[in-house]
Design a binder for these strands. Structure first.
Lengths: 100, 100
DNA sequence: ACATTGCGTAAGCTATGGCTTACCGTTAGT
DNA sequence: ACTAACGGTAAGCCATAGCTTACGCAATGT
């Protein structure tokens, strides 16, 4: 999972405030600037982030399709889990009725 | 993140089909039975799973509150990300208007 | 009593992931 | 041209995560 690492999540979330150059993203983080670059590379590889050049800086921003895919993944994952649990609940409900 | 590891997710998802002893969960998985025990321990530590004894076997099942918490975490995480992106879209929308 | 089945746990291996430092190319300012 | 800012990438370090094997203990069957 791309968003498993807390630092990477933080990087990701910092982009929510809008497109930003690497410097700005790294500012205040407890890790070095290269570390941030590496996280950005991973995020980009996962399609969650876009990158464009603006003079000497690279501006990173959230990527719409990436978010959509992530959303779908989360949704399907969750609805699966939920369905199963509902079925589970109903079953134990029936069981408890049966016991009476 | 507890659900970062694929094997652990698989273990978790196998419980969607209902409560199961460790043996049944581990059956067919590409890892050893102790490995599964270890994953279950983590899941239990995260409150996602319950465990009860039934004779010599330990029956694991999904834990309602754990699922709720997970759901809330996912929701807040996502709505944050989404809000930010919406703001982003509106902003660039305004920008594009301005350019005309 | 004894063997067997189910499972948790300890110990140890290994791969990997995230970090740092060091370096390089590129853009921009003077 | 010189220098400085920005940031990507390589190399190497280290902690951790996940795995396996080995073992032990409780419950069950014979």
């Amino acid at each position: 999972m791309v968003l498993a690492d807390p630092t990477r999540r933080e990087v990701f979330e910092r982009l929510r405030a809008g497109p930003r150059p690497v410097n700005a993203i790294a500012a205040g983080l407890p890790v070095s600037r290269p570390a941030v670059s590496q996280h950005l590379k991973v995020l980009k590889g996962a399609g969650l982030v876009d990158e464009r050049s603006e003079g000497v800086r690279r501006i990173y921003s959230l990527r719409r399709e990436g978010l959509v895919e992530l959303r779908e993944w989360l949704d399907s994952f969750w609805s699966n889990a939920l369905d199963a649990f509902k079925a589970e609940v109903e079953k134990s409900h029936i069981d408890s009725k049966r016991k009476k």
